[in-house]
Write a protein that binds this DNA or RNA. Structure first.
Lengths: 366, 366
DNA sequence: TTGAAAAATGTGTGCGCACACACTATATTT
DNA sequence: AAATATAGTGTGTGCGCACACATTTTTCAA
């Protein structure tokens, strides 16, 4: 009935050799004669051999050290979610030959990233997962680990020239387009739109610029040149000129909507709007942070684009683990859908999030 | 460094018994003295024993027969997606002791469901996955398999009184609310809204009624009694009165939006709208069927709520497999998020869909 | 108090694989 | 031709667990 799965033993019999030879062919290690290799390859082909990954991990009990490099997650709800994903994956993979450890750096101090990266190198990891927040600072680090042959995966932000094993995240340009689309629904008349970047060093933050680009492009397509866009950038929490500009923007009568480019910024902007009694303005932000959920419920925020930080981190670890342990070929790019959260579908996301269970076999080709 | 995972052997040593006794306690089979059980339980607790699921599947090489009961997927894009999920899961689990076979019935002929269910029983399955389309017809079947002790999982539609092992799907009431919300965005003035049910036997279709209920409730909350809702139900493709009523509805000047309750209906309604040149009316439908995607792109459809039929089916099989093979406790209800698809985030969903890779460890408690 | 039945516990094997090791056939050197 | 190197091959063990089976201990009736 259900044909049994083909084992190495079956291949050996079919090829008229021993399991040892098949093993050598499969992992091309040791010496194998041309003749034997051909026979084995033929048998593998013919029987469509697919290794039993479960038995594979049992057999070899290597320990792979995976390291995740993140911004500090204390007092930071976004990176706390990321960290939660890391913890989950730690739990998940602990049995199966992967140990995951986290190294944190300080978002305010670029030098701390370099310190941490040195520490990581000294720990001799087998794989590295990281969010390349500081574009300029991470590039040389990529060089080093690439030379050392340590596979690494990126999430959150993609850096194409990094030679990473895999990127896990979203299409940020398209994310900006989605934001613009959401602000335009049912608003045929053009007007002014605001883009807010909060507490980020814009020059070093490719990801935010990509979002803004997508946002602008969509508006242009939708309204032509008839709408104006004001981009504000808060450099620090004590940036008074930002506050003033924002207040001016909010008083414009033709203000159609606001787009905040980051999850933390969303919270900041929403609290500002609320305290200024400006609940009528449509607003799009990022992520299901507690505060953001609150403002969404209150009607201050209208849409949240869900970046799934927790899942990204989890997939990142899984990607490395699959590569190292199962020797699976992984997808070079793993794009998450751009999920739109509203007041009405919010609850369905929260259920899913708390009971989130990860996917061992994602990020794999075939 | 990384503390090794606790094995049964370790527990046995800690409790001062043999692995056999620990095994008996773990699976409560065979006889174990009170004293021994207490010692083992204490050791399990203290060492936080977690079985190595991988080794577990290797050890016992039982074959579990899982059966999926579905409407025929030929010439039906929705059920074709479901079937794709089944195939994926088949591939995924084939190595690990589960064989999945599909039995199809005819959506137009309720008696064919009963025929198929008889066939299924005769095949003596270890687990059953099904979409309870015909409410009244499935109830007695649930009775039978429940008595026989065959675990079964539902997807697509939940029937709470069914005593199913698990339900995989969405909150359909909330789904209707999301649809209404999407139609209301930026439309402060009340008007007329249409609800379209296409080609379904409404009396037997709890799922569609739940959606309509949610839809109506939201509109009431949003507009009070100032908006009117017209619910149309097409009973067959040759239902002319439906066409006439729909045409009348579309000509109403205060028509604000249309909500189609099923994925296939979405396609039908969209094609009707297009051929009548009514592109300006906001419309919400279901699922990423090829035709629906086309109409979304064209601007005829504005939003699709993604029911993830493929993933639902896959999770359904995984749920049963986890229950049978790994003896894991599975979640009684596994609600998917109500994902909103627009023109701008559509692409990000299509990527994810084609490369969809399933989650072995979802649907599990802890 | 003996002995069979029942209860409780221990032991051994195999799952499919990786990997170390032992072994054989052939080639190369002396 | 013997000694040695080396290419090529086969065998055996263990991973953590389930499960069948063997063994010991206890119970209780005759």
């Amino acid at each position: 009935m259900a044909k049994k799965a083909i084992r190495i033993k079956d291949i050996a019999k079919a090829a008229g050799v021993s399991v040892g030879t098949v093993d050598r062919v499969l992992h091309n290690r040791g010496k194998v004669s041309e003749k034997a290799k051909k026979k084995v390859d033929a048998a593998l082909q013919k029987n469509e051999y697919r290794p039993n990954l479960i038995a594979r991990t049992l057999g070899s009990n290597k320990e792979y050290k995976i390291v995740a490099i993140l911004p500090k997650h204390e007092n930071d709800p976004y990176w706390a979610q990321v960290y939660k994903g890391i913890l989950l994956s730690k739990h998940e993979w602990s049995h199966y030959g992967a140990s995951i450890s986290t190294y944190s750096f300080d978002l305010d101090r670029k030098s701390s990233f370099e310190e941490v990266s040195q520490k990581v190198l000294r720990s001799r990891p087998d794989g590295i997962l990281m969010a390349p927040i500081f574009y300029n600072e991470t590039l040389p680090f990529f060089e080093v680990i690439h030379k050392k042959g340590i596979p690494f995966a990126l999430f959150n932000t993609n850096i194409i020239e990094s030679k990473a094993l895999s990127f896990i995240g979203q299409d940020l340009y398209q994310s900006g387009r989605v934001a613009a689309e959401l602000l335009c629904i049912g608003q045929k008349e053009p007007g002014t739109f605001g883009v807010l970047h909060v507490d980020e060093d814009l020059e070093d933050s490719v990801h935010l610029l990509q979002k803004e680009k997508g946002f602008r492009d969509y508006l242009k397509e939708f309204y032509g040149d008839r709408s104006s866009i004001e981009s504000l950038n808060r450099t620090s929490s004590s940036d008074f000129s930002f506050k003033k500009k924002l207040a001016t923007l909010l008083n414009k009568t033709d203000l159609k909507g606001l787009f905040v480019s980051s999850s933390k910024g969303t919270e900041t902007a929403a609290s500002f709007l609320k305290s200024h009694g400006k609940n009528g303005i449509r607003m799009v932000g990022y992520d299901l942070l507690d505060k953001n959920i609150e403002y969404l419920d209150l009607g201050v925020i209208d849409f949240l684009i869900h970046q799934k930080p927790e899942q990204q981190a989890f997939e990142g670890v899984s990607c490395l683990a699959n590569h190292l342990i199962f020797k699976k070929e992984v997808k070079p790019v793993n794009l998450f859908p751009l999920e739109v959260v509203t007041r009405q579908n919010l609850a369905s996301y929260l259920v899913d999030q708390t009971e989130y269970h990860p996917n061992e076999f994602k990020n794999i080709i075939n």
